[in-house]
Amino acid sequence: MPPIKKKVSAASAATRGRLIEAAGEVFATHGYRAATVQMICQKARANVAAINYHFGDKENLYFEALRHGRDQLLAELFAEPAIKPGEPPEAALGRFVRSYLEGLLGAASPDWHRRIVAREMAEPTAMLDRFVKTCIRPQHDRGVGIIRVLAAGRLTEEQMLLAWRSVIGQCLLYVNCREALLRVDQKTAYAEGFIDELVQHITTFSLGGLEALAAATRPAPGQKSHRQTTLNKAPHGSLRAGA
């Protein structure tokens, strides 16, 4: 159960912040199971009572560190609506991809922000359900919503889910496999401007894939179209960028 929220002084808030930062680094390095509250307290210059006061227990401290890491990585993503008023959905998709890649590949956040989230995905803890509900699901629904507008009733729900996961999969390849890809390319780091190139590629490739899916889903003459039978109420439109 999450701890009861308390009003705290500036000094107490600073202690809480140090605990989250220290816990994030320790959990990202050692994993939830191997990390101890003693390691965290030593790094944060705090005592176990401070963990109990601010978080209740190790599990809640882990969740807060995990959520903080993810929120910092994707802060820009949720700073604006999924699709701004008057914005073409193609542009919204590109903006999502850019915010996602800049958050995960950029240098603005400490490395543990990425590592703790990646570790939770690879080694799930009891906190995964809570993390999915509060953090991953909103991000997922936002992305699927953009795909739904782009699909404009021409794809099934399953096709739209798969399409969105293909977009995210392309992004995550360059995040989770970065070191391997750099070695394949005989490089030590992604080149300056690589994120711009990647955003353009993933957005264009994904829009082309959606167009191909929509074309393949069109019924033969005389058959009812998916648009006539689907529960999706989105208005019809083109998937081509700039249309």
Rank of each mutant, 00 (worst) to 15 (best):
K43I: 09
C135Y: 02
I83S: 06
Q38R: 11
L155F: 06
F131R: 02
Q42P: 01
M121R: 14
N52S: 13
G143D: 07
T36D: 09
E76W: 08
I20C: 03
H54C: 07
A28C: 08
I20D: 05
D141C: 09
P110L: 00
F78G: 12
V132K: 08
L74I: 10
F63H: 08
Y53E: 10
G143I: 01
L155C: 12
L150P: 05
R33T: 13
W112G: 02
P138M: 07
E76P: 02
K84M: 14
I136W: 00
L93F: 04
A14S: 14
V117C: 00
D141W: 09
H140M: 14
F55E: 05
T15M: 10
F96T: 00
T134I: 11
I40C: 08
A13C: 09
A34S: 14
M39Q: 15
P88I: 02
G145N: 04
Q72E: 11
H140Q: 12
A75E: 14
A126V: 14
D71V: 08
D141S: 13
R67M: 11
F63T: 04
T125G: 07
D71M: 13
T29G: 03
R16D: 05
E102I: 08
K84R: 15
R16F: 02
R114F: 03
V97H: 00
E90N: 10
G106F: 01
A49T: 12
A49C: 07
K84S: 13
Y100S: 06
P110F: 03
H68R: 13
A28Q: 01
P110C: 03
A118H: 08
I40A: 00
V117S: 01
E59T: 15
G145Y: 07
Y32A: 07
E120Y: 05
I147C: 00
R67E: 13
A118L: 15
